[in-house]
Design a binder for these strands. Structure first.
Lengths: 139, 139
DNA sequence: GATACGATCTCTAGCGACTAGAGCTTCAAG
DNA sequence: CTTGAAGCTCTAGTCGCTAGAGATCGTATC
């Protein structure tokens, strides 16, 4: 198996420029090149890039992925660190969900109060314009 | 009332460089200046900036805020557009919540399965590394 | 009026994680 | 051997700020 960057891209669903970007920032090692300087990849790169893609889908930051990749290269090490990275990330996601749910509630209320009349009576504009008043009304 | 940029910042909780940035991108009009070229603001700017800040807190993008501000300047116009901007935004937030909840479930499972042993047995690394297998196991 | 000092000024560059484009070269099929 | 897709490098742009350099301004105190 000797994949061009486009083939690697297809197999991993990571776009070609993104693969080159990952190489540039040191997330992927520089691969072998053809005589004409084109990149060629093998199975380990497919695996590593799949790992990266899935971790990105899970919302891990590049730096966290870097750490996870380093860990995965030391199979005898304790997985305490991987656990704590994942837990930390889980915490963050839970915070983001909580925040978004609060926003959803407020937006939902705003949209519900819009009487579909004119701007000058519109609760959407009004609520955004005067948050203080809005908070008095709702808490 | 003749506020320096720092006073405006305090009243609106928007940082000074951010205020200048908003002016630069045309979200705030260039204010009057002192002879020494320092910015001075009045009540309308306080109001507008508060509107912007709250809309940002609600997660509206700058372009959406621009639209909402334009709308709010035409009080006789129909509020249909404001409504649709807010609804669209609500949709997006609901999608984000749904996605984050899926991530939370997956991360939660990952963390739960980690046996706190060695990397080579760690479900966290494994699950990220091989998403396909993970999906087979769980669906 | 002089001085000190914090606030403000402009300008440029950086963040994260890519994405887009220009202008060139290489590879593989026919 | 030609063609055309795919690859190459390099630079710049995205969003919404944030940080820093180095200069100037405004105001309070002496």
């Amino acid at each position: 198996m000797n994949l061009a960057i486009g083939d690697l891209s297809q197999r991993t669903q990571v776009k070609v420029p993104t693969i080159r970007y990952y190489e540039q920032i040191g997330l992927l090692a520089p691969p072998v090149r053809t005589e004409g300087k084109q990149r060629r990849y093998g199975p380990p790169e497919v695996k590593r890039l799949n790992f990266i893609r899935h971790a990105r889908e899970l919302g891990f930051e590049i730096d966290e992925i870097r750490q996870l990749l380093t860990l995965s290269e030391e199979p005898q090490a304790s997985c305490h660190e991987a656990d704590s990275i994942a837990r930390h990330h889980l915490d963050e996601i839970e915070q983001r969900i909580a925040k978004l749910e609060a926003l959803r509630a407020e937006l939902h209320r705003m949209v519900g109060e819009c009487g579909h009349g004119r701007i000058c009576e519109c609760r959407i504009i009004e609520v955004i314009a005067d948050h203080t008043q809005c908070e008095h009304e709702t808490h």
